[in-house]
Computed example of a mutant assay.
Amino acid sequence: MLASVGVSGNPELEGAFATIARERFVGPPPWQMSKGGGYSALTSSDPVVLYQDVLIALAPERGVNNGSPSLHAHWLNALAPRAGERAVHIGAGTGYYSAILARLVGAEGHVVAVEFDPALAAQAKANLRDLPNVTVVQGDGADWPRESADCIYVNFSVVRPAAAWLERLRAGGRLIFPLGVPGPVQTRGRGRHSLRGAGYRIERRGGGFAVSWLGAAFFVCAEGALSGTKEEHEALCAAFDRGGAEFVRSLLLDEAAAERLWLQGDGWSLSYDEVAE
């Protein structure tokens, strides 16, 4: 799987995916697979089916899934968690990728897994109870982390990064999150997902926040404080319409020259300029 997404030479990540049993985190069969905006039941109850590159429903009435292993392998490779680091997983669901993060940071590291939905947070706490280096929190992802972190991994779509993610990212720390234009609210178990979206990796450097594009990404949309305003949705949609999302190189705070920006937010922006070293 790692080779299929261009990841090589990462035995720690390969070992984490090989060791953590996905079936522990997706509930008992029959499982539902997300496909084409809806869900279909998997006819087999053999856990081997869960090791295909598929999205498995966690809360289908809200469109919440255990996401694509290939995408997460690609993103976790880019996040590059290291032994002993403090990681924060925001939008943890039932804890599968939290467990993989816990394996990557090791016994000397720590993972805080944050989940907005109380039922999913309770499942994550039960699923991760045997991992002493994981703390599960039920809360709004906009409020976390509350202490400095080396890695912040966000698994829902937002129209802006939360202030806490940027403020508490340590020097050399990495943040990955999906930026996305919310689609319409759906019924019949589809939830609300981004219509257009991209994943970004942010690294805090001495001169600011360096950005790299991780490709297109379509996640369930944020609830709570990060759901965004109509004006933010429209501004992000216009930015995607203009193109150039893949050429963003820095995240700026405060004001910046408009002609070099891909997206201007309230007190922040995404720019084509490289971060000064």
Rank of each mutant, 00 (worst) to 15 (best):
G207V: 11
G207A: 15
G207H: 08
G207L: 15
G208Q: 06
F209T: 06
F209W: 05
F209P: 05
F209E: 02
A210T: 09
A210M: 13
V211M: 11
S212I: 09
W213C: 13
W213P: 11
L214D: 02
L214S: 04
G215Y: 00
G215K: 01
G215Q: 02
A216F: 08
A216P: 07
A216S: 14
A217E: 02
A217G: 05
A217S: 07
A217L: 08
A217R: 05
A217H: 02
A217Y: 00
A217I: 00
F218A: 14
F218I: 13
F218D: 15
F218G: 13
F218T: 15
F219L: 12
V220I: 05
V220C: 08
C221N: 11
C221P: 03
C221K: 04
C221L: 10
C221I: 07
E223D: 11
E223S: 15
G224Y: 03
G224L: 15
A225E: 06
A225D: 04
A225G: 09
A225S: 10
S227C: 12
S227Y: 08
G228Y: 07
G228A: 12
G228I: 12
T229W: 01
K230P: 09
K230V: 12
K230H: 06
E231V: 11
E231W: 10
E231N: 15
E232F: 04
E232D: 06
E232R: 05
E232S: 07
H233E: 14
E234F: 15
E234K: 14
E234S: 14
E234V: 13
A235I: 14
C237D: 14
C237F: 12
A238K: 11
A238P: 06
A238Q: 09
A239W: 00
A239V: 04
A239H: 01
A239E: 03
A239Q: 03
A239M: 04
F240M: 04
F240H: 00
D241I: 06
D241H: 08
G243Y: 00
G243W: 03
G243L: 05
G244F: 02
G244L: 02
G244I: 00
G244M: 00
E246M: 06
E246N: 08
E246F: 00
F247H: 09
F247E: 09
F247V: 08
R249S: 10
R249F: 02
S250M: 08
S250L: 13
S250Y: 02
